[in-house]
Design a protein around this nucleic acid. Structure first.
Lengths: 338, 338
DNA sequence: TGCGACGATGTTACCGCTAACATAGCGACG
DNA sequence: CGTCGCTATGTTAGCGGTAACATCGTCGCA
């Protein structure tokens, strides 16, 4: 009768017809084998395999009200730090048969909101968010959706749902405290734009707090906020050296900026740390390799993604997670640049 | 009657009930406004907005047989080159209301196959694949699925469907040719593992071809294949310097490796390019910033992703793409290291 | 004034899969 | 030997949308 079975992907029904059973038996043979007689099971599975049958996850999702999709909202993908988090998330979720939707906001809270809305419309089973500051509407939507949600990176004290991260402020304070302790003299700061970026904001706060605590006045003229890339780091260092007198040490709120700054110093023939000391943040691969090696702060990037993925999987497996706020810590790594 | 409208996300039906119309009218008011009387349209839209109605894309996907999902299969996300391609793809697709599923294979063709299968099961509307060598089964599945598919990076002569990229081999030849022309003497090669990585394989082929063409014997002892990261680049350079006598110039098939190699040379107090010349491939941001600046080959990374995204959107909009194989070109960038 | 065309809306069926309930066959047991 | 209970399988309905066709006024024109 219906011999048009070849034309496209086979459906459950085709398998059922060929096996001479109902679609329910096929579903069972594939998804709950123990509920089907051995002979039937083998026959159905063989036919499904020979037809190259693959379940339609869209249909399954609609029926089960569970899509197997997880959405990750990140500022951008080209940042090493973020990329490693996403990689950790991706690996963990893939192991558990979830698929990862990613969206880049370009550090815009409005774009984040739109992305979250789109993901919820897609009925993702869970969401990973970068950072802890979101629009009111974003939070409202996520609360209402009542799906697992992990905020990663900066540690949320009162997360929407769950959180994995570390205190950006404490970490930045630690590095700054070290720089102050070395007694270099006038301290500069190079960081990313704080707008819609709580990590950047809190790192600067940590810097300021450490200075204040040490009784040092923060000279705003020596603090530069800029884009988050190598070139911007170099330009910022150039500006500090050219137009802001007397900087002797600089805290960069990201290794990318620190490395750019180092290159600029090197181009000018300055000796690091003798002429200018530099400290970074993140401990990217390059920090340990660059010459001289970069004093920085290690953050378990991949680990953040992995833990976030695990928490999501736990919850979606119906188990409660023990700690819904995980402080993953950080480690100060003194090297040669400061 | 049914006053439980609040408990979860509103459905089309809720909106319809409140507006006193059928669900079809609501669908039309939202998706094809001109098909509905002005008064009705306004009323329905207002109610939908006030309820915070969002269409269920899973259900829509099932009904339309079109999900609005695009899958991207990449080796890993932590590589800058790849990350920029994905960013280009993501930006373009997001603009056209598609959502991006990403999967990382870790340079395994088998993992790629599994990922493609999973994406097809999810009924993605199109797929982006990295590189041009895939398992037979991967190709078969994609052909059968008959959805738009772009192979990006290395240029495919006979793509599964469409392709955007450049000739890795020609590009590598160009750099090598330049190195040979500078007359440094014994030439070394540091590249990524070629297994399941046609870009790496073809770059080495380009290196070999250029040497042969110049009548230079390739000394396999001076060729090292390794992981694709900074540390591996540094280790490889260390090995060349320690155990392989007389290398005077090295072609690195990726900037990441070249930069690692440069750092190792610097640690040994070698002068670049006087003691050892180095050339890279990719023209990452760091290539122009590092001191001395890195001679390399520029590849329009973001552009590859963007073009791929555009081709996919064109096809999904029902328009034919003019060129199904786009050679995006490359540019040799001579700088200070070689 | 009657009829066809057209605009606005409703009804039905289906996308592919699965939960929940229904049924049929069969062995055990009082 | 009838009933219980278990296993294997089938039937029905529904997930939330939308295409396709049906219906019902209304208006223009012969």
């Amino acid at each position: 009768m219906s011999d048009d079975a070849q034309r496209s992907r086979p459906r459950l029904k085709e398998v059922a017809n060929l096996a001479g059973v109902s679609t329910m038996t096929v579903t069972r043979a594939l998804n709950a084998p123990h509920k089907v007689a051995a002979a039937t099971r083998v026959r159905v599975q063989a036919i499904a395999r020979s037809l190259g049958y693959t379940p339609d996850l869209t249909a399954r999702g609609l029926s089960l009200q569970r899509t197997g999709l997880v959405g990750a909202v990140v500022p951008l993908l080209t940042n090493s730090l973020i990329a490693e988090i996403v990689q950790g998330l991706s690996d963990t979720l893939a192991h558990n048969d979830f698929q990862l939707l990613v969206g880049a906001t370009g550090f815009s809270a409005r774009a984040e909101e739109a992305m979250v809305r789109a993901f919820l419309s897609r009925r993702v089973d869970a969401i990973y968010l970068t950072g802890i500051s979101h629009t009111v509407e974003t939070v409202r939507m996520l609360r209402q959706a009542a799906i697992p949600c992990v905020e990663g990176g900066n540690l949320a004290r009162h997360p929407i749902d769950m959180a994995v991260g570390y205190s950006s402020k404490d970490a930045a304070s630690k590095v700054t405290h070290y720089l102050i302790g070395r007694g270099y003299g006038p301290l500069g700061y190079i960081g990313a734009w704080p707008r819609d970026n709580d990590r950047a904001r809190d790192r600067r706060r940590g810097f300021t707090a450490a200075c204040r605590k040490a009784g040092i006045a923060v000279d705003d003229a020596l603090c530069i906020e800029t884009d988050l890339d190598l070139n911007a780091g170099a330009r910022a260092m150039a500006e500090l050296l050219d137009r802001r007198a007397g900087v002797r040490a600089v805290f960069c709120s990201a290794d990318t900026l620190a490395v750019g700054a180092m290159f600029e110093a090197q181009r000018r023939g300055l000796s690091i740390p003798d002429d200018i000391a530099i400290a970074g943040f993140d401990d990217l691969d390059i920090a340990s390799q660059i010459v001289p090696s970069l004093t920085t702060l290690r953050v378990p990037r991949y680990e953040i993604g992995r833990r976030a993925g695990e928490m999501i999987c736990e919850r979606l497996a119906g188990r409660a997670v023990r700690e819904s706020v995980v402080d993953i810590g950080f480690a100060f790594v003194p090297r040669a640049t400061a």
